[in-house]
Design a protein around this nucleic acid. Structure first.
Lengths: 128, 128, 128, 128
DNA sequence: GTGGTCTAGACCACG
DNA sequence: GTGGTCTAGACCACT
């Protein structure tokens, strides 16, 4: 279920967290569903257990999962507990970076939009 | 002419390099044009000279500028040294990250596209 | 494994980069091999960590190594990113300088060739 | 008579000095011959007069020319006043750098020798 | 004045 | 522990 790409500019913990978040948004993971244990997920994805811990920390901080001592991690059903303004702000920063980097590569606005659209489509396919 | 945003997720040297690249792409800087000296640009932007050096290093290795000791830094006229396939590859990676992170924030495809478009517009305003 | 000569006309970061490049060319370093960490190499060679960083920067931009944050620096297996014509061009420039300076010292063609040959032999010894 | 290449890694003053030295070695300039004035040479080659001054300084220091106040610069007839051991030492350093840089470009010993030979031939043609 | 290199030491993010 | 960025300040060579 999890695909990680060590070559991605995105940190590994972020890739994991993002995929959990996405599964929730799609309804593939629902409230109360149990996530794999840290060790299990680390083995499956061959990443450092500390990295999985950090992904789960991030998800817990953002209200996507909750932990029950000795039992494991479970889906809350929410996709985030950040307020919309904060989320928008972060999205803006993120896209600012994308625009900046894209321009540095010598692309213009329409080319950037096309590239983003392609990735969105690609993402949809991989997850289904 | 140069504006830097210390709060940006993009490193300062990248912001500087990106702005030079952009000016070349727009035709505001042409082959043979002289860039501000390292010290001058450092003074103007109140960043450390070494940071400017790093920006210029980046631009030189990417074939955008060339340097002459004792004389200064000059525009080559090229916007990049990289072949198109390599540039496309990097752009794809870049957008993969944007999609990944945007989804984590709980946004969907259309929302991401809208956010990117907004940043592109904003960027256009700032540069003119 | 690394030897640096502070008296050399070559900058230290170049000497380091050159030695890594050479080890790859000889097959002593292979794809996926891990390089010493920045701090470790700095300690071993008693140069400043920033100088090692610059050497690694050079190697990365030339496609000889890739870096993973928190993990380390690894050999790509390539000895250079540059196309052969570009490499030839640079070699020609380099030798133009050698001829120019050698003549200034009052040597003629055969003397220059002999001197180059001697350095090549010396280099071979040091690396083995 | 003078050809300068601003793109060369060799500093301009060095290129000028080298060409004077070479002309002496070939007998094209003889004892007592007068060199162009600083201003004249600067105009001809479109370099900074200070750069010409530095070239003449270098030649004077090395015993190749002498100055007569108000009259100009003249050839001594010697090609250098450095002792042979010092000249050999400098040549060795110079070639060490060439080997180092050449290897970094991914070339081996025979390729370096071939490239040097080619430059020597090229130099002979240009000067005649 | 220009760029080029190096040292020293700080703070941050990732595994 | 790893790499990434930045500041501060020094010394050198070239125009």
């Amino acid at each position: 279920m999890f695909r990680i790409n060590p070559q991605s500019p995105d940190p590994i913990f972020q890739q994991l967290a993002s995929q959990v978040m996405e599964a929730v948004a799609r309804g593939q993971l629902k409230e109360g569903d149990k996530l794999p244990s840290v060790r299990e997920l680390a083995r499956e994805t061959t990443v450092n257990p500390n990295t999985v811990v950090k992904a789960y920390d991030t998800l817990e901080r953002d209200g996507v999962i909750y932990r029950r001592r000795g039992a494991g991690c479970f889906i809350t059903g929410k996709t985030t507990n950040l307020a919309l303004p904060e989320r928008r702000k972060r999205l803006a920063k993120l896209m600012e970076k994308a625009v900046n980097d894209g321009i540095y590569l010598g692309f213009d606005g329409p080319a950037l939009l096309a590239a983003l659209e392609e990735q969105i489509k690609k993402n949809r396919k991989q997850s289904s």
